[in-house]
C-alpha cells in the first residue's frame, strides 16, 4: 500500500469510525465488544484497502463486516449476559432521554430482541439505510428485511406493553 493510500485510510477512519462504532454498540450492547469488532473490521479493510478504495465502498465494506460480526457475537450469548451498559441505558429514565415518554422503555426492550432483528432496526433507524441497502448489508433479500423488521416491531410492541410504565402506542 502506498503512503497516499495510508493517509486515505486514516482520513476514512477519522470520518467514519464514530458512526460505525455507535452502530456496533447499538447492535452488540457492549462498548468493549463493539470497539473490538470495529478494530477487526478496520484491520480487514486495511489489508484490502486499494481494492476497497478503488471500488469506492470503504464504509459499506466495513459496516458489512462489522454488522455481520456483531450479529454473530449476539447470537452466541444470551441477551442477559451482555446487556447494554447499565450506566448508559438504564431501565429507569436516563437523563439523556428523560422527558421523552416511552423512549427508555423502548431502548430496554430493543436489547431483548434477537441480534438479527436488532441489526435491522439499527441499520434502518440509526444508519438510515433503505430496505434494499439494509438487505445488502445483511446479505439477505429485501423480503427478509421486511419480515425481520415486522417481527421486531411486533415483538417490541409486546415488550413495551408489558413494561410497568409501557406507554408506546
Amino acid at each position: 500500500m502506498r503512503s497516499a493510500d495510508d493517509a486515505d485510510f486514516s482520513t476514512f477512519v477519522a470520518a467514519s469510525a464514530r458512526r460505525l462504532l455507535r452502530s456496533a454498540y447499538l447492535i452488540t450492547g457492549s462498548l468493549p465488544e463493539a470497539e473490538d469488532l470495529l478494530q477487526t473490521a478496520l484491520e480487514k479493510a486495511y489489508r484490502r484497502w486499494p481494492s476497497i478504495r478503488q471500488k469506492d465502498i470503504p464504509e459499506a465494506y466495513v459496516r458489512k463486516v462489522l454488522v455481520t460480526a456483531a450479529i454473530d457475537a449476539g447470537r452466541r450469548r444470551k441477551p442477559a449476559s451482555a446487556p447494554l451498559d447499565e450506566d448508559i441505558l438504564p431501565g429507569a429514565p436516563d437523563p439523556a432521554v428523560e422527558g421523552v415518554p416511552g423512549r427508555a422503555a423502548l431502548l430496554s426492550c430493543v436489547r431483548e430482541l434477537p441480534a438479527g432483528q436488532r441489526a435491522v432496526l439499527v441499520l434502518r433507524y440509526f444508519d438510515d439505510l433503505t430496505e434494499a441497502d439494509t438487505a445488502r448489508m445483511l446479505g439477505c433479500s429485501v423480503g427478509t428485511v421486511k419480515s425481520q423488521h415486522a417481527r421486531a416491531m411486533a415483538r417490541l410492541r409486546e415488550l413495551v406493553a408489558n413494561q410497568p410504565d409501557g406507554s408506546m402506542t
Binding site: F9, V13, L31, D94, A96, V100, L106, L107
Partner: peptide
C-alpha cells in the same frame, strides 16, 4: 414510534467515541 426509535438510538449512543489512535491500531493489527 419509528421516529422515537431513531431518537433513542441517537441518544443512547451519543457518548460513544472511538479511540483516537484507532487507525494506527488497525494498521498495526493488519
Amino acid at each position: 414510534v419509528e421516529h422515537e426509535l431513531a431518537a433513542a438510538f441517537e441518544s443512547a449512543s451519543e457518548f460513544v467515541h472511538p479511540h483516537p489512535e484507532l487507525a494506527q491500531r488497525a494498521r498495526a493489527g493488519a
